[in-house]
Amino acid sequence: MQINLQQVTADYQAGPIRSPEILKSISTTIKSGSFTAVVGKTGSGKSSLLKLMNGLLVPVKGQVSIGEIMITSENAKQSVKEARRKVGMVFQFPESQLFAETVEKDIMFGPMNFGVPKAEAKEIALEVIERVGLDATILSKSPFALSGGQKRYVAMAGILAMRPDILVLDEPGAGLDPKGKKEVMDLLHAWHKERGLTTLLVTHDMDDVALYADEVIVMDEGRIVFQDEPERLFSEMTAIHQWGLELPQARKLQIRIEQEANVRLPRICLTLDKLADALIEAGLA
């Protein structure tokens, strides 16, 4: 499902005091089926951009299109409901949204809010819990009795159960150990491929960008300042610095090796595998 933003301006209204513009006249298209990473400094507006997708933040000016659904400040009340049906959102530390007595009920919460009958919601719960790699017996347990990692999976299952067309992820691996983080990312990536979803991923980890994304958006002070393939981004050295970004570990090492050995590897390497291949190809290793 394609996402389109046209000249979107947005802010937060907190009580009587209005915040300054957080997103400033943003226009972009996110292709259907793409896996797009959103990167940028803390406070640059990444989470706010994600919130536009399901109307948690409504444009003051401009319009957001989610497939056929169009969200503007005038029609927000109705359009936002439809958008939330299509967009599944995994927040940072999603385990903090768990509330029900059992894991099953928590997973059924989303689908049932959107009118899925109880019996069907139960089936979905069973399906997604197995899909995230947890045992079906966990369904009858209290979510608060689970370990940290399991809670994260249950929370994600609760989003997947809504069968979204668009998946919006805000640092889904934060706070997990490296193995746990890789499992979470691989799972989401596999889900993205299987279902042909359109996925947006906010991350600080440039290795995630290198591994999973086919497009990357850079945010800076409430604007989109770059949108292209990761390879292109990580060859713009000065701009990267200016936007407060890092390089993927492989790319960082590549640059160091190229400088110290005074050679040029055949291509830009963003992942370990590509760097290993290039080093062998260049006869360095």
Partner: peptide, 16 residues
């Protein structure tokens, strides 16, 4: 702040 976050999360799951 936290209330806002939790409300957003439940809104995203279809609560109005």
């Amino acid at each position: 702040d936290e209330t806002q976050k939790v409300m957003d999360a439940q809104r995203a799951r279809g609560t109005v």
